[in-house]
């Protein structure tokens, strides 16, 4: 069987949509963070696959992925630090409780 571009793009798109869905529906902040990771990783897959199948002569997509992974790691570290701060104050990491400020 021939593994073509589509075999990679469809899972990555599904991952991205799951991430968006999870970001909107999940109530736990850690779960939201995981959804965000899913979205970022879908982007990484896209870049690598486009690079590998369409433009095998260059490495631009691979390099972008490397940087994107580093950026995602930094984002997660920062977000977790902030979530820990919230937990210290509120003893809870449910987004439904973040309602002190609205409208």
């Amino acid at each position: 069987m021939d593994i073509t571009l589509m075999y990679y793009l469809i899972p990555s798109l599904v991952m991205f949509c799951c991430g968006v869905y999870g970001f909107i529906t999940r109530k736990n902040m850690i779960a939201i963070l995981i959804s965000l990771e899913l979205m970022l990783n879908a982007v990484d897959i896209n870049f690598v696959v486009f690079n590998r199948f369409l433009f095998p002569g260059q490495l631009e997509g691979m390099f972008f992925t490397l940087f994107a992974i580093a950026i995602a790691a930094a984002e997660t570290a920062l977000a977790i630090a902030i979530i820990i701060n919230i937990f210290r104050v509120a003893k809870n990491i449910d987004v439904r409780d973040l309602t002190k400020m609205k409208f």
């Binding site: 965000l36 879908a42 994107a68 984002e75 920062l78 977000a79 902030i82 979530i83 919230i86 104050v89």
Partner: peptide, 21 residues
């Protein structure tokens, strides 16, 4: 301040994920 930071970082990451897609 923390509540604002959570809202900011989540939307910032979400938007940059969409941008990179």
């Amino acid at each position: 301040s923390h509540e604002a930071a959570v809202k900011y970082i989540m939307t910032a990451v979400f938007s940059s994920a969409i941008f990179m897609m």
